[in-house]
Write a protein that binds this DNA or RNA. Structure first.
Lengths: 185, 185
DNA sequence: CTTTTATGCTAATGGCAATAGCTAATGCCT
DNA sequence: AGGCATTAGCTATTGCCATTAGCATAAAAG
């Protein structure tokens, strides 16, 4: 019996691919095992249990998305950076709608996600830095940005918008709405 | 063997109570059956299967919420009605966070939810009527309202906002942001 | 009072998560 | 090269849940 050469990373790869193809609800150890060409109990050598695998997938998604957000704001500043950040957020979700569902909504409150969530938060803070908000106003601004971007993305990922018609236009409008709500620079 | 006197409505009652108490993931036929004082297979006399029960719960939640939204705008108009609508939406979610997760995001696209979803949509349209939007602008306005209200509500229901501190203030700010984005009346 | 209908039951099947314990491949260390 | 410890993978098993089949009896209809 030859070895499959699994590693935790490859198990997570398979899990992510499965989520992409069949949705988050299809993320089962049995399905991941089959995709890895292995019996289900073998996965426990690389992952503690199903909950652990879900966590690992979530962390990977946060990191991946954070990378794209960071790229989106690099070399930009002010309203330009913020708009680019918001568009990058939406782009990630439209490219990988099922992955977005694997991302925890409250990463900062769960130790397993805290570090990844913090890095994403830092990117958002960086985009808003030019405004020089004090602490409470910065918090409100970050929350408003998240509300818009998460609201739009989760509705779009779930097909919640009826016709896809003019969705780009709607998104540009909510970006403008958010920017107009920020103080002049 | 005395009868339990179950009906579909009472099964859904039990399901909703279960969701409230233990979250949407705990909605299982076995648990509902126990709560009804009945063996699990007996539920199939009132509900086709688990998916059907989930649908029934979702429909009930949409109707319930629609009722509260309609109450919130009655006797009001313009910005007053819109703000009241948005607050009522959030209130429902904070009062029943787990139920909100049972509500489908794209009701209009699923036949089982279409009627209920349409009634909710009509309430939102009613609140925006004074602006006299043409079709495309009305669509954008409704979408923007949903983005904000769903984004905020789903983040709050999932505990996604770190400290609950000043959440009311954040919500009032995003309401103002949305109202400021509407044309003058 | 009989007949029909519908409600609830027990028994059984199949899928999935998880654990226990075995076997063999791999890596390390002379 | 040979020996040993480690580790990856396997089969077997348990338990929970959804679902189906078939039975018994309560309630309703005549």
């Amino acid at each position: 019996m030859p070895r499959a050469g699994l590693t935790q990373a490859r198990v997570v790869d398979a899990a992510v691919a499965l989520v992409d193809e069949r949705g988050l609800a299809a993320l089962t150890l049995a399905a991941v095992a089959e995709r890895c060409g292995v019996a289900a109990p073998s996965l426990y050598k690389h992952v503690s249990n199903l909950a652990d695998l879900r966590t690992l997938v979530g962390v990977r998604v946060i990191h991946e998305m954070t990378g794209q957000l960071a790229t989106a704001i690099s070399g930009r500043s002010g309203a330009d950076a913020v708009a680019s950040l918001m568009r990058a957020y939406r782009d990630y979700v439209t490219e990988h709608p099922a992955r977005y569902a694997a991302m925890p909504v409250d990463p900062l409150h769960q130790p397993e996600f805290a570090e990844a969530g913090l890095r994403m938060l830092e990117v958002i803070q960086a985009a808003l830095r030019p405004w020089g908000f004090d602490q409470p106003n910065l918090i409100h601004a970050i929350r408003a940005a998240r509300v818009i971007v998460h609201g739009f993305a989760s509705l779009e990922a779930a097909g919640g918008f009826g016709l896809p018609h003019d969705l780009d236009e709607t998104f540009e409008r909510v970006i403008r709405m958010f920017l107009a709500d920020l103080p002049e620079l």
